[in-house]
Design a protein around this nucleic acid. Sequence first.
DNA 1: CCCGTAATAT
DNA 2: TATATTACGG
Length: 334
Amino acid sequence: MREDESDWFARWEEELPSPEELIPLSQSLISPDLALAFDIRTSNHGNGNSNQPHHHHPHHHQTTPQTPSQLQLPSSQANSSAEFAADSADLGSGAAGDEPARTLKRPRLVWTPQLHKRFVDAVAHLGIKNAVPKTIMQLMSVDGLTRENVASHLQKYRLYLKRMQGLSSGGGAGSDPATDRLFASSPVPAHFLHPNRVPSSDHFMPSFVPIATLQQQQQMAAAAAAAAAANPHLQPPQFHHRQISAAHFGSPTNGGFSSPTTNGGFSSPTTNGKFDPSFLARQTQQQQQQQQQPFHRMTTPSLHSPVGNYAEDLESANANGGRTVLTLFPTRDD
DNA sequence: CCCGTAATAT
DNA sequence: TATATTACGG
């Protein structure tokens, strides 16, 4: 019945992480190669996100002492320690030769259900209007996530939503199982489907999202966690080392298996059958900028953020020919 | 510049 | 296949 669905969504909304919870969540999703490839260095603008191959702008902003190779590799080869030292030096030359290192391709991002969930949460909390790639990326605070990553995913997600909307009844075969598996792993907020109105009061748009990188993120997250400790909802730190490889699951038809998440199956609120084409549209140019906190606190390097513990793993060289895939996996399924 | 979409590439 | 990249219009 409708009520069920209504309730379902209501509860879902209630459970949405508040900004405090969402923001400080820090994840590391960056491979050492990546960091180096992009030469995450300290002389760049103090941008929150550590991506963007572009490194111009002679802005003298607060330096961002990001530690490139501070990632822990679960297995695989550990960081090669000091394999490189100064690199940005020659970059200045800008001679005809481009650094090969900079030309490296980043590994394909694997959108795990959890990562996607963060994506959805971010979009939900940003509000449809502000849910643009850049903003989403910032809110997600996933290190190594690029705007392109998000944009690409967002594009597909929108298509998914449109498809969902197309079905109202019956259809058992509305969705392509293959494409929808991922998206189905996270419930779709009601407002996504009918942007007519917002869920009421609680929709705010943080003027900015403090985003730090790497260690700084962890530290901030730790601080936030302390505050969160007083709060009832938070996920305990749990390490679950399970590799989710989206490479192939071999489930030609639906019903093959269940998502790792306790996906009970979603059902569209479908109280109405139509859907507005402007649900996730760009609104205006917000000038929201993130600010980098020059916090230089020293904490245990091995300290993981008590909030949302994620480990990053990188599956290198598949049988497919050395395709490096970045896989982020969560502490626990939902 | 950034976003949205479609087409195309890997 | 899933994701990345490109092209183009707004």
